[in-house]
Write a protein that binds this DNA or RNA. Structure first.
Length: 300
RNA sequence: GGUGCGGUAGCUCAGUCGGUAGAGCAAAAGACUGAAAAUCUUUGUGUCGGGGGUUCGAUUCCCUCCCACACCA
């Protein structure tokens, strides 16, 4: 097993894109992006996709391969990314995965269990129930269907309860969850790119201003009719939708985008602390990462 | 200058019929296997504008000053 997937994790705006491109050029390989919002071709400015120039330097996969009208999730990504990855391993010993979406990276590396698929019709029904009758109604529904799952579910979290109902109903219809992991045919090295909190937050603020200069407001305006799509439940867009809606001024919206981006970065860091506590670098330490790749035993 | 309304947590504000206070947001920490840039959990914080008076006790009542806003001149 001499194939290795080098995973570059890190919070938003830390400089993952540039780091990954530098590494990919040195390793003469390609990049699999694991960023749940850069998948969508219609939203580019607010998702900080790699530039045309950057995309020309190194071949990227999963950038703009979907429409905001598509439904897509971590399970779909696992399947699609594995397919591409296995293709790439035919001609490369090392492939790079970059991403800020912890769950998606995890799906690629560890695999998700065999569980029921998302049921959009059921979800709109449950969302309606939640909107009209609140979390208690969801909790009760779950309790009636499957007490066992009820006890394992984070009951204050509406999305979790809805998913639990989805799973419980599928099991009622005969679905048998399979928790067996599929072992991967490749090694994995996970590194986290990070900066001092203060520096990172400053970069976030600056990047949001830059996005506004590049026309984020206009992009959001174009997307406004589809603001309820999952793809547009995204920092940078929701705030501008609310502004266009008349909820607050543009400067206020920009301030909130910065704030919510900082909150998001914080959540990512929390995830990565657990995911890969061993190897943390700053964005310029590409040589150290290469050295790690060569010298260290791969970790999983 | 006059009148009115206000000054309480980093911000927006609630409240205390007198016994030194609390929500939301922010912040910090955390959870997270098909919505994940989503969603959720936990935690603190205060010379209650300054000074004086009444009172056993004032952030609360009274007086005065300062500041902000609105209206009138």
């Amino acid at each position: 097993m001499n194939k290795t997937l080098l995973c570059i994790l890190g919070p938003t705006a830390v400089g993952k894109t540039a780091t990954a491109i530098t590494l990919a050029k040195q390793l003469n390989t390609e990049i699999i992006s694991a960023d749940s919002r850069q998948f969508f071709k219609e939203i580019s400015i607010g998702t900080a996709k790699p530039s045309k120039q950057e995309l020309a330097e190194v071949k990227h996969h999963f950038i703009g391969h979907l429409s905001i009208h598509d439904n897509y999730n971590a399970g779909d990504f696992e399947r699609d990314a594995l397919t591409i990855l296995n293709e790439l391993f035919k001609t490369h010993n090392t492939v790079i995965a970059v991403g800020g979406s912890g769950l998606y990276v995890k799906a690629l590396i560890d695999g998700l269990d065999d569980m029921p698929k998302a049921d959009e019709d059921l979800r709109s029904e449950l969302n309606e129930l939640y909107k009209t009758e609140g979390i208690l109604a969801l909790q009760n529904k779950l309790l009636i269907i499957n007490e066992n799952i009820y006890q394992q579910t984070e009951l204050q979290n509406p999305q979790r309860v809805m998913r639990a109902i989805e799973v419980a109903l599928a099991m009622q219809k005969g679905f048998v969850p399979n928790k067996k992991k599929n072992p991967r045919e490749f090694n994995v090295i996970k590194v986290v790119i990070n900066l001092d909190r203060e520096v990172l937050y400053q970069r976030i603020n600056t990047r949001v201003d830059l996005m506004m200069q590049e026309g984020l407001l206009n992009e959001a305006q174009t997307m406004q009719p589809y603001k309820d799509n999952y793809a547009l439940q995204t920092v940078g867009y929701t705030e501008l939708f609310n502004h266009l809606n008349g909820d607050y001024t543009l400067p206020k919206a920009v301030e909130l985008i910065k704030q919510h981006t900082r909150n998001y970065a914080k959540r990512q860091i929390t995830w990565f602390k657990k995911e890969a506590p061993q190897y943390w670098f700053n964005p310029t330490q590409t040589n150290e990462i290469i050295a790690l790749l060569i010298n260290k035993k791969p970790i999983t």
